[in-house]
């Protein structure tokens, strides 16, 4: 089972929820930090990293001896990663999205495989948790393939928690797609609600059951609760706006370890997620 922890708005508490949830579940868990542009779950989990592996993606390299300058490779590339000037072919690897269309279409077999580093995957353990994170190379603009690499560490029998990037674009979709449940972390502010609505619409398209965690639940207004009722979204946990929680976070500590009364609350959150998934399955 894979639970993705997502949000529309950034900074709502995805990492707080995913790390505390992971350590509160009474079975072996894999925690994947798929926010590869700024992975920070490791700060709270403090895993012992055992492996660091660079990840590469296909970019074309032109064999000038074989190339006849027909221009088909540049024509098929919608990202303008290739320019054909007479018999000269320029490659702009940073624009390539690795579709390999150029290699498929080349009649002269002149497109060879080169590689661009996307970033590294770090993995390690802490207690019962197997932790994996992607860390994008500085200057790299394309995160989805690295996110998919992180997710390839999941086996069907695993319980996986994914700390997703915020938003509703390709990175967030690649972290949520094909998961069994989306735990949407939000806050009861106009910004929080606005971005939550966008994210919920995306989850509807992906057709994944979804529930809410309301962080800083005693600030803002009540519009969020109205929206949740209207959409039939269960609110599975409310975390108050509490200075001591913020202090624990800012020290890089886990709430459930510093305030043990939170541990059963997060354990029940997991049970509620399992219940929601099973209820939905039985309806279908």
């Amino acid at each position: 089972m894979i639970i993705s922890v997502a949000s529309g708005k950034g900074g709502t508490g995805k990492t707080t929820v995913s790390t505390n949830l992971a350590v509160s579940i009474d079975r072996e868990v894999k925690l994947f930090d798929c926010d590869v542009e700024e992975p920070n779950a490791h700060l709270f989990l403090n895993p012992e990293f055992e492996n660091s592996t660079p990840v590469f993606t296909f970019v074309p390299k032109i064999d000038a001896d074989r190339c006849n300058g027909c221009g088909k490779c540049a024509e098929i590339c919608r990202f303008n990663a290739l320019a054909v000037l007479g018999k000269k072919v320029l490659v702009f690897p940073e624009l390539c999205h690795s579709c390999e269309g150029c290699r498929d279409i080349c009649p002269e077999d002149a497109v060879e495989e080169d590689a661009r580093e996307l970033g590294v995957i770090d993995s390690g353990h802490r207690n019962g948790i197997f932790f994996v994170q992607g860390c994008m190379r500085i200057g790299e603009a394309m995160s989805p393939p690295l996110i998919r690499h992180v997710r390839s560490y999941a086996r069907p029998e695993d319980l996986v928690i994914i700390d997703a990037p915020p938003g509703t674009s390709c990175p967030a979709i690649n972290a949520m797609k094909g998961t069994d449940f989306v735990l949407m972390v939000t806050e009861p502010t106009p910004f929080g609600l606005h971005d939550l609505k966008l994210a919920v619409e995306a989850v509807k398209v992906l057709n994944i059951p979804c529930g809410l965690v309301v962080n800083r639940s005693d600030i803002g207004d009540r519009q969020l609760w109205d929206y949740a009722v209207q959409e039939g979204l269960p609110i599975l946990l409310e975390i108050p706006f509490d200075r001591s929680i913020a202090e624990i976070y800012s020290r890089g500590q886990l709430l459930v370890e510093e305030v043990p009364s939170w541990r059963p609350i997060f354990a029940r959150l997991y049970d509620a997620i399992v219940d929601t998934i099973e209820t939905r399955r039985s309806i279908q």
Partner: peptide, 28 residues
């Protein structure tokens, strides 16, 4: 979305121009 300058440069080349006159020209 991206690579407009690359395409424009290719087009100018295909039309046989020897000089480009413009305001700003980016690295690609």
């Amino acid at each position: 979305f991206k690579g407009a300058g690359i395409q424009a440069a290719t087009m100018v080349h295909d039309k046989g121009a020897e000089v480009v006159m413009t305001g700003y020209c980016g690295p690609k």
